[in-house]
């Protein structure tokens, strides 16, 4: 699904690289977790994988294609759920989804039913005509995910999709991710909620200061490092120093 080799990215005027010769790979069809403290380079890595950052060195392949050479093709098969609510707050949820759907070139005859199906799946059908700015935090997060599913992506990349949501919304999102994976799709997700990652992910990669620290299945890693859970393992590997 994803293969990264020697990835290096340093922003202009930055003192240190955000991603420093990072190499990893995730198999197709799995739920993979990209974990790390603040400033570890998770969002930069995701942005490179999704073709939003084009200036970097190293090799990056997504779904067997070089990101630099086949960016447009990859974008068509990829769904990105950004950390921010990347929706127009003054548009209704349906208007947002119709707009993004049209940009993907989905014909109206298909787009309408697809939007209704997704709204129903995320419990937003009755609120579809409300402007996003009137949504609660959890509803915004769910709408944010729906907008990334319109092209029915084979690989869904989520950047902290459950940040700031209530237990019910969180539960719904995680249940959906499992179901989506069971439908044969791959998922790459970042989170600071390590119990969530432990329960959801089949494979995790912990990175710190732009470099890979460790990779493997959560259960195996916990066993190998003789810790109680993923959070303790994370602290053991990345330390207790508070990051900016």
């Amino acid at each position: 699904m994803i293969r990264v080799s020697g990835l290096y990215k340093k922003y202009d005027h930055a003192e240190f690289p955000s991603v420093d010769h990072l190499s990893f790979s995730f198999p197709e069809g799995c739920i993979a977790g990209l974990l790390g403290p603040n400033g570890a380079g998770k969002t930069t890595t995701i942005s490179i994988l999704s073709g939003l950052i084009k200036k970097y060195s190293g090799e990056v392949e997504v779904m067997g294609m070089d990101v630099k050479k086949h960016a447009e093709e990859i974008k068509g098969k990829l769904g990105i759920v950004p950390q921010q609510i990347a929706l127009y707050l003054n548009l209704s949820c349906r208007e947002n989804l119709r707009y993004y759907g049209r940009l993907y070139g989905i014909p109206p005859i298909t787009l309408g039913p697809l939007i209704e199906q997704l709204l129903k799946r995320f419990g937003l059908q009755e609120h579809g005509d409300k402007q996003i700015r009137h949504y609660s935090g959890g509803m915004k997060r769910r709408a944010n995910i729906i907008a990334s599913l319109l092209n029915q992506p084979a690989l869904l990349i989520l950047d902290e999709p459950t940040a700031g949501v209530d237990v019910q919304s969180r539960n719904m999102i995680l249940r959906f991710l499992k179901e989506y994976n069971e439908e044969g799709n791959s998922i790459l997700y970042t989170s600071h909620l390590l119990d969530e990652a432990e329960a959801l992910c089949q494979e995790v990669l912990i990175i710190d200061q732009g470099q890979g620290v460790i990779q493997g299945s959560p259960a195996k890693l916990i066993q190998e490092h003789q810790t109680d859970n993923l959070e303790n393992l994370f602290l053991k590997l990345t330390g207790f120093r508070v990051r900016d």
Partner: peptide, 21 residues
């Protein structure tokens, strides 16, 4: 507002010439 809200990046993650937008 589009850029700060993240819509800009979402638009750029959709295939097709950005110039159309």
């Amino acid at each position: 507002a589009e850029r700060k809200g993240g819509s800009w990046n979402r638009l750029k993650s959709i295939p097709g010439p950005f110039f159309h937008l």
